[in-house]
């Protein structure tokens, strides 16, 4: 049997954290409901536990980690494309590879 795919870190959270790599199209239980994950997700990434509207705060470990910049569906990846800091912008770079993201745990 596969290990659990995601972990809920605090009851107040509206995101879950992946605790292994998840394949695109995999079904993952979110609060008991099997939910299709559209994109491959490496270990340590976040998905929405419930629909999150643009402007809403995103909670992880019970604390705000920023605001949604777009509406996010349940099970959708929550990352730089739809979440921003309420303090300073995050600087990102695309090295054009998928280093460290192709392995399965």
């Amino acid at each position: 049997m596969k290990r659990p795919a995601v972990i809920l870190l605090a009851e107040a959270d509206n995101v879950l954290v992946t605790c292994r790599n998840i394949e695109a199209g995999e079904m993952v239980p979110i609060d008991g409901a099997e939910t299709r994950i559209e994109v491959a997700l490496p270990l340590g990434f976040k998905i929405a536990r419930k629909p999150i509207r643009a402007g809403e705060k995103v909670f992880k470990l019970g604390m705000s980690i920023g605001s949604a910049t777009a509406d996010i569906d349940r099970g959708q990846r929550v990352h730089t494309e739809n979440l921003k800091s309420d303090y300073t912008p995050s600087f990102t770079a695309d090295h054009g590879d998928r280093f460290g993201q192709g392995e399965t745990l």
């Binding site: 992946t18 340590g44 990352h79 730089t80 979440l83 309420d86 600087f91 990102t92």
Partner: peptide, 29 residues
């Protein structure tokens, strides 16, 4: 927060985002 705000960039490297962290608050946590 003021100091990093003036610099226009927080203590957040591209590798942090590639590893699944999205914001400085999340990294802080």
């Amino acid at each position: 927060a003021r100091y990093y705000g003036l610099l226009g960039q927080g203590s957040f490297a591209p590798g942090n985002a590639e590893g699944g962290l999205t914001t400085i608050e999340e990294k802080s946590l």
